[in-house]
Design a binder for these strands. Sequence first.
DNA 1: GTCTATAGTTCGATAGAC
DNA 2: GTCTATCGAACTATAGAC
Lengths: 231, 231
Amino acid sequence: MVAAAAASRVRATSKDDILDAAEQLFALRGFDGTSMREIAEEAGVAQALLHYHFRTKEGLFEAMFQRRSDAINSSRLARLDQILDAGTPRIEEIIDALLRPTLEAGHDPARGGATFARLILTTGASSHAWQRALIAASYDAMARRYIAAIGKAVPGLSLADATWGYLFVIGAALTHMSPTGRADRLSDGETSDSDTETLIARATTFAAAGLRALAADAARPGPRAGDGGHA
Amino acid sequence: MVAAAAASRVRATSKDDILDAAEQLFALRGFDGTSMREIAEEAGVAQALLHYHFRTKEGLFEAMFQRRSDAINSSRLARLDQILDAGTPRIEEIIDALLRPTLEAGHDPARGGATFARLILTTGASSHAWQRALIAASYDAMARRYIAAIGKAVPGLSLADATWGYLFVIGAALTHMSPTGRADRLSDGETSDSDTETLIARATTFAAAGLRALAADAARPGPRAGDGGHA
DNA sequence: GTCTATAGTTCGATAGAC
DNA sequence: GTCTATCGAACTATAGAC
C-alpha cells in the first residue's frame, strides 16, 4: 500500500502504461473498434501482460473507465462542495463545475482532444448491460448530488424536471467535447468546436436559461405535454 | 426506374430486408459491434448476398444510413417549409420540427426503441473519416437551413451562436432518445426516459429558452468568455 | 512480472454452382 | 439473384518458459 503509493509517485508502472494506452485507444475507437493487440503495442508491452493484469478485455475497460471517472467525479464533487459551502448557489457555477472536469479529463494537448466525454456517452448508450451498469456505478451518486444542487439553485424545479435538466446539460455539452470541425463548417468559420472555452461558455448560458425555463413552465397553470395525466 | 418504384410499392425486396436488418443491428450494437453474419441471419439471406448488393460492410452501412437519414431530413425540411410559409416562425415550432422526425424514425413499437438517434451521434463522432463524411453529406445542408431559421426566430443571434444552439439542441435531445432507464433511476421514478412526449416537451422548453439566452447574452456589453478577442 | 508461441474462434470477402 | 463452401486474416485468451 505504502510502497505502491510511493512507486506511483516515482514513475508510471506497466499497469499505468497499459491503462493510459487503453484509455487513449478506447476513447478514440470505442470498445469493439479497439483490439488488445493495439493496446499492448501502444503501451509497449506484450499482449499477455494485459491479461495478467486485467484478465479480460472487459476487465481492462472497466479498470480504465473507473480510473478516469473517479478522477472526474472527485473533482466535480469537490467543486460542488465549495459552491454549496459559500451559500445559495448560482446555477451557472454549478453547470461550470459539472462540465469543466470532463472537458479537462485526459486532455492531452499533444494529441487529438478531449475524447473521454465521447466514451462516457457511448458507454451509457451501449447495448452491453455491463457497460450501462458501469455508468450507473460510476456516475449515479454524483449525478444525484448535482440534481439536488440544481433544484436548490433553481427554485420551483421538480425532481423530474431537475433530472431532465441534468441529462440535457450532459447531452448538449459532452456530445461536442470531441472536436470534429462540424461547428467550424456549419458556421462558415465564425466559431470552432476546438475552442473549449467557447463551448463551456455557450453551454453554460444555454443550459442555465433552459433550467430556469423548465421551472417557469412547471409553474404555469393548465396541463402540460408529456405528463400523462399525473397532474 | 418505373418498375423499381412499382416493385417497392408491392413488397419488400431482399435488398430492403437486408437494409432493415442492418439498420436494426447497427443501431443497437454499432458498426464495429455488428457482423455481416448477424445481419444476414436477421435478414434471412445468405451472407454472400450482402456483398453482392453492397460490396462491403462499409457500403452496406452507407446505404442503410443514407436511406433513413434521407427520410428523416425530407420530413424535417417539409415541416420547416410549412412553418416558414406561415409567417414569422416561433422557435418552439422549429425545435419540434427538428426533433420529432428523428424520434419517430425507425421507431418500431414492437421492439426496443428509437435507436437511430444513437447511430447519428456515434457516426458523427466516429474516428473513421468516412463516417464523419457521411454525416456531412447527409445532414449539413439540412442543418444550415435550420440554423438560418433559428436565427430568424430568435433575433440577435449571430451565426456562431445559432450554430452552437443548433448543436446543443441536437446533443441534448438525441443523446436521450434511446431509453436506458437512467432518468427513471435518477428521479426515483418521477419521470421516465421511455416517455418520448415528455422528452420532446422538456427538450423544447429547455432549448427554446437556451437559444433566447444566447441572443440576450450576446447583446450585453463587455467581453465574453471564449470569444478570443474577435469582438 | 514479463515474455513467446499458439490454440481456438470469428471475421470480411470471394469463388463458383445454380 | 441467391446459394454453399472456404480462404486468409484478425481476434481473445491461455500455456508455459524465464
